[in-house]
Design a protein around this nucleic acid. Structure first.
Length: 195
DNA sequence: TGCCCGATTAACT
DNA sequence: GTTAATCGGGCAA
């Protein structure tokens, strides 16, 4: 079994963590799969919830690393983040897509869709499939219901602009497995140099 | 207090 | 391609 990720894993640059999370396995009550798409949010970044300081909603981001920050998006969906960097940095990785591997039948039922590709390909979708709500906000990531395992082997990781934001749109802080069928959106081709 | 808008999704045309 | 669903944060008044 691959190495289990504990709190110290998250106590460093949010970008280092994001890169290493691609290919890692996340289970919630035994259900989940491989992380194939994540985004980094840093407190100096205008697109981050923590950019304007601490509020009731984002309080967990200002706490120690290795905890879940869950917020409501557009009034109806939930989004899952992992708090990173030393306490007070208020930086986090948004989990955007998962390749389902465990508890697929359960996820299908929770989502009400049969297409495996649509089960966890988006931050709101994966929270519905894994039953993540505000009830998990502030929970430690190295204790039940969470299980996190390091990537085993290689991963072909690409970076690109983040999705769905209007500030700092040019920062290439979205990371994922380019060839994965389970991304929320494909990564654009890397620009080729002309001879 | 009131208003606008968002780290989204599904169902439209 | 567009839009409704739905609500808390942030800012103006």
């Amino acid at each position: 079994m691959p190495r289990r990720l504990t709190k110290s894993f998250f106590n460093r640059s949010v970008h280092d963590v994001a890169l290493e999370l691609v290919g890692a396995t996340l289970l919630v009550n035994g259900v989940g799969g491989r992380l194939v798409e994540v985004e980094a949010y840093h407190h100096t970044d205008p697109a981050a919830h923590s950019f304007r300081g601490r509020t009731e909603r984002n309080a967990v981001m200002f706490g120690p690393p290795g905890y879940a920050y869950v917020y409501r998006s557009y009034g109806l969906h939930w989004c899952l983040n992992f708090v990173c960097e030393p306490e007070g940095s208020a930086s986090a990785v948004l989990i955007r897509a998962i390749e389902p591997t465990r508890g697929v039948a359960l996820m299908r039922r929770r989502r009400g869709v049969s297409n495996e590709r649509l089960l966890c390909s988006g931050p709101g979708r994966l929270c519905e499939a894994l039953l993540i709500t505000h009830a998990q906000n502030g929970l430690a990531l190295d204790a039940p219901p969470f299980e996190l395992f390091a990537r085993a082997g290689e991963a072909a990781i690409v970076a690109g602009p983040r999705i769905g934001i209007t500030k700092a749109v040019d920062l290439p802080w979205r990371y994922g497995e380019k060839a994965s069928r389970f991304l929320s959106k494909p990564f654009k081709l890397v620009a080729k140099r002309s001879a």
